Amino acid sequence: LKGVVVAGGVLAGAVAVASFFLRNKRR
């Protein structure tokens, strides 16, 4: 169960970083 929580956190972080980079590329 702990691994699932960690994986979810990593996935959420990756999505946040990806969206951040996409926003920067638009400018």
Results as ranks from 00 to 15, higher is better:
L1E: 12
L1I: 13
L1F: 09
L1G: 11
L1C: 06
L1W: 01
L1P: 10
L1V: 09
K2S: 10
K2N: 02
K2E: 08
K2T: 14
K2P: 11
K2D: 03
K2G: 07
K2W: 05
K2V: 03
G3S: 10
G3N: 03
G3V: 06
G3P: 03
G3C: 14
G3K: 09
G3D: 07
G3F: 03
V4R: 08
V4N: 03
V4T: 02
V4G: 08
V4S: 05
V4W: 04
V4F: 06
V4Y: 04
V4M: 15
V4A: 11
V4C: 14
V4I: 15
V5I: 01
V5N: 04
V5C: 08
V5H: 15
V5T: 11
V5K: 14
V6L: 09
V6M: 02
V6D: 13
V6E: 15
V6N: 12
V6W: 04
V6Q: 03
V6A: 02
V6C: 12
A7K: 11
A7Y: 00
A7V: 05
A7T: 03
A7S: 04
A7W: 01
A7E: 13
A7C: 13
G8Y: 00
G8Q: 04
G8P: 05
G8M: 06
G8W: 05
G8L: 08
G8F: 02
G8I: 01
G8E: 07
G8D: 02
G8K: 04
G8C: 01
G9K: 13
G9C: 04
G9V: 05
G9P: 07
G9E: 08
G9L: 07
G9W: 15
V10P: 03
V10A: 06
V10E: 13
V10C: 12
V10W: 13
V10H: 06
V10L: 05
V10I: 00
V10Q: 13
L11W: 02
L11Y: 08
L11C: 03
L11K: 04
L11N: 09
L11F: 14
L11A: 12
L11E: 09
L11I: 07
A12Q: 15
A12R: 10
A12H: 15
A12W: 07
A12E: 08
A12V: 13
A12M: 13
A12T: 02
A12P: 02
A12C: 13
A12D: 09
A12Y: 00
A12I: 14
A12S: 10
G13V: 05
G13Q: 12
G13M: 14
G13D: 11
G13A: 07
G13I: 15
G13H: 00
G13F: 06
G13K: 07
G13S: 04
A14K: 06
A14D: 03
A14C: 02
A14H: 08
V15L: 06
V15D: 05
V15K: 08
V15S: 09
V15F: 00
V15W: 03
V15Y: 12
V15I: 12
V15E: 10
V15C: 07
V15A: 13
A16G: 10
A16F: 14
A16Y: 14
A16H: 11
A16P: 01
A16R: 09
A16C: 06
A16N: 00
A16D: 02
A16T: 15
A16K: 04
A16I: 01
A16V: 11
V17T: 12
V17M: 02
V17E: 01
V17H: 09
V17A: 04
V17L: 00
V17I: 09
V17F: 10
V17G: 01
V17Q: 00
V17P: 00
A18H: 02
A18G: 10
A18F: 01
A18Y: 09
A18R: 13
A18K: 13
A18V: 00
S19Q: 06
S19D: 01
S19G: 05
S19K: 01
S19A: 04
S19E: 10
S19I: 08
S19W: 08
S19V: 02
S19L: 05
F20Q: 11
F20C: 02
F20S: 06
F20W: 14
F20K: 01
F20P: 11
F20R: 09
F20Y: 02
F20M: 06
F20H: 14
F20I: 08
F20D: 02
F21Y: 14
F21T: 06
F21S: 09
F21P: 12
F21M: 15
F21L: 11
F21I: 10
F21C: 14
F21E: 00
F21G: 06
L22R: 12
L22S: 08
L22D: 00
L22K: 05
L22H: 02
L22Y: 00
L22F: 10
L22I: 13
L22Q: 15
R23V: 09
R23N: 01
R23P: 09
R23C: 06
R23I: 01
R23L: 06
R23A: 02
R23M: 15
R23K: 00
R23Q: 05
N24A: 08
N24Q: 05
N24H: 00
N24Y: 14
N24K: 13
N24L: 00
N24S: 03
N24R: 07
N24I: 04
N24W: 14
N24G: 05
K25N: 04
K25C: 14
K25V: 11
K25S: 04
K25Y: 00
R26C: 12
R26D: 09
R26Y: 13
R26I: 11
R26E: 03
R26L: 01
R26N: 09
R26S: 09
R26M: 01
R26A: 11
R27I: 11
R27S: 03
R27D: 15
R27V: 13
R27P: 12
R27C: 00
R27E: 05
R27Q: 01
R27F: 07
R27K: 11
